[in-house]
Simulated assay, not measured.
Amino acid sequence: MKKAILMMLLFTAFLFVGCNGTEDTPPEEDAAEQTPEEEEETSESPDEGEEAIDVTLKTMYNAPHGDKAFASTFVVMDGDTIVDVILDEYQFMDNADVTGVPNSDASFGEGSAEDVTLISKLENDEIYSEMMEGAGSTVSYSDNLTAIQDFAIGQTVAEVEAAISELDDLEEDDEIADVVSGATFVDTSGYLQAIVDTANEGFEFSSAPEVNLENAELSYSLQAPHGDQSFAVTAVLHDGDTVLAATIDEFQYLDPADFDGVPNSDAGFGENYNDDVVLASKILNDESYSGMMTDIADATSTYVENIQAIIDHAVGSTVEEIEATIDDLNGLGEDEEIADVVSGATFVDTSGYLQAIVDTVNH
């Protein structure tokens, strides 16, 4: 598996590709029933007297804690200052009593070993925190992440890096909470490093050119916008019901000969895969996945180009306006084009990706 930094560099190249192509279907095994999607961009000027700033929403996949899980990290940046953060990790657990990621009970779930389910630790906070209690933890998983995220918010990347060095220099009797208030994770520095790496190297889609952060909120959710063979991670920066920035990516079990797996695919996490598959990010495997789309469904635009078009359409729009677009898409006649509603989009499930953004804002 390529190192995460190489994957980020590869993805950066994808983001400079234009979004004007026309495309057809992302390949999941029933690709004949599938097609991709996109959108456009609008923005409003801030009220007079309010300070407008350029803001970026960045995403990266990391391995901050051991080799049995991987993390999604979302970071909102204002220049070199961290404005907001959300972290979540995904791990395989015994089937009993856990809530799996979307489509775990469908075709997606067939990609893992028989007796385990891929979960979000945040969505299973109570169960996972009980496991931590068995190891002597007195602070829940979500409370630990909140403490780490709150510590990073408002600091520069350099200031967080200084805290990482301080944590790494702690003696045996020193307390992690003396550096990061409320945190007890032994790998607290690893989670902070995930934030730093995402701030420095994470991929991003275009956002509103001017953003006022006074009332902005970062929301995150897991979705199933396209078929039953994958699930999506969606993060949206929004001011009330107006979308300021967004990111969407999907994970699917694919052939390891052609696709790079998520972090720890070659370690303990990957030991839970079924035979001859690897869990892959579609964005970080854009070239390979788009090639499948071309081979199976004659797609003419890449996966990333379609997702960019969808996000471009949503940014600057309200939830109500996006829902109106979804209605328009669902009402298209057989001979009408998706791109006539969402410029640049060709995914047959374009409405599903827009709905993922709406559901995340409302999450």
Rank of each mutant, 00 (worst) to 15 (best):
L6I: 13
L6W: 11
L6H: 05
M7R: 11
M7D: 04
M8Q: 12
L9C: 12
L9H: 08
T12W: 12
T12N: 13
T12K: 15
F14G: 00
L15F: 10
L15P: 13
L15Y: 05
G18I: 08
N20E: 06
G21K: 12
T22Q: 12
T22W: 08
D24R: 12
D24T: 04
D24W: 10
T25Y: 12
T25W: 02
E29A: 10
E29M: 09
D30C: 00
D30F: 10
A31L: 01
A32R: 00
A32G: 15
E33Y: 01
P36I: 08
P36M: 06
E37R: 02
E38M: 10
E40V: 11
E40H: 01
E41A: 06
E41S: 13
S43T: 10
S43P: 00
E44R: 15
S45C: 09
S45G: 06
S45E: 13
P46V: 12
P46A: 10
P46W: 00
D47H: 07
G49K: 06
G49R: 08
G49M: 12
G49C: 03
G49Q: 06
G49Y: 11
E50V: 14
E50G: 08
E50H: 14
E50A: 11
E51S: 07
E51G: 12
E51R: 13
A52L: 04
A52K: 04
D54A: 07
D54K: 08
V55H: 03
L57F: 00
L57A: 01
K58L: 07
T59S: 09
M60L: 07
M60G: 10
A63R: 03
A63P: 06
P64S: 02
G66W: 03
G66H: 06
D67E: 15
D67P: 14
D67K: 09
K68I: 15
A69M: 15
A69C: 15
A71D: 08
A71S: 10
S72C: 03
V75S: 04
V75M: 02
V76I: 09
V76Y: 13
V76Q: 06
D78T: 05
D80L: 04
T81S: 04
T81C: 08
I82N: 02
V83R: 10
V85R: 03
V85C: 07
I86M: 07
L87D: 06
L87M: 13
D88P: 04
D88I: 03
E89H: 02
E89R: 14
E89C: 14
Y90Q: 11
Y90A: 01
Q91E: 08
Q91C: 04
M93Q: 14
N95D: 09
N95I: 14
N95V: 15
D97Q: 14
D97M: 15
T99H: 13
V101S: 05
P102I: 05
N103I: 06
N103P: 04
S104M: 13
S104K: 06
D105Y: 03
A106V: 01
A106Q: 07
S107H: 09
S107E: 15
G109I: 10
E110M: 14
E110F: 04
E114P: 03
E114Q: 05
D115T: 06
